Simulated scan of single mutants.
Amino acid sequence: MTAHAEHTGRRGKGRLRSMLAPFGAAALTGAVFTYVGLVDPNQTGHYPTCPFLLVTGLYCPGCGTLRTIHALAHGDMVAALGLNPLAVATVPFLLFWWGRWALRTWQGRPVRTTLAHPAYIWAFLALVIVYWIVRNLPFGRFLAP
């Protein structure tokens, strides 16, 4: 075996090994979607109640997300949007970040340690807080699960 072929073989194994993290994240996400798709959160007793909802009687930004995942797993986009539109809206961004991570890892390029520019992260945090407040107000009941 030539030195070039041996180096290329090691690089291929290293590339596949480096893809374990992105593939592991995808497998875990797929397992969660499969489990929640099979075990209906609309039926009582399968999942615990949201602690914030239990204590305050108010919806948190994540309330309805399990049922949203269940609806998405069954291809019911309308129901998913009705349960937690913010969770549905984040899916394309999560897919983009996962794809960027997987591509950069496959190419052997350094993976960025931040998901996005800090201004975008702060804007998203502000959006979550506004969503949290509005979904608990009378005029924002359409955002409640």
Rank of each mutant, 00 (worst) to 15 (best):
V91L: 07
G108Q: 05
P85D: 04
A116K: 15
A79P: 02
V134L: 14
T90P: 00
A25D: 03
T113G: 13
T90H: 02
H7C: 12
L86Y: 07
F139H: 14
V78A: 07
T29N: 08
W106K: 02
R112N: 08
L38M: 15
T29K: 02
A3P: 04
G37A: 12
V128Y: 02
R104V: 08
L28E: 07
Q107W: 07
L86W: 03
L81W: 04
M77D: 11
H4A: 11
P61F: 08
V78Y: 06
L72T: 01
C60W: 01
L20I: 13
T105L: 02
L54K: 14
Y47W: 07
G75M: 14
L66D: 00
H4K: 12
L72Y: 02
G45F: 09
L81F: 09
A26D: 05
Y47T: 09
T68F: 02
P48S: 11
V91D: 12
T8W: 08
F96I: 09
R109L: 04
G108T: 08
F124T: 15
P110V: 11
Y131E: 04
F93G: 13
V78D: 11
L115N: 02
L143A: 02
I129M: 11
G140S: 03
N42M: 15
A73K: 03
Q43G: 11
L28N: 08
T29F: 15
R141P: 10
T105M: 02
D40G: 14
E6L: 10
L72C: 10
M19G: 00
R104K: 09
G12P: 03
A31F: 05
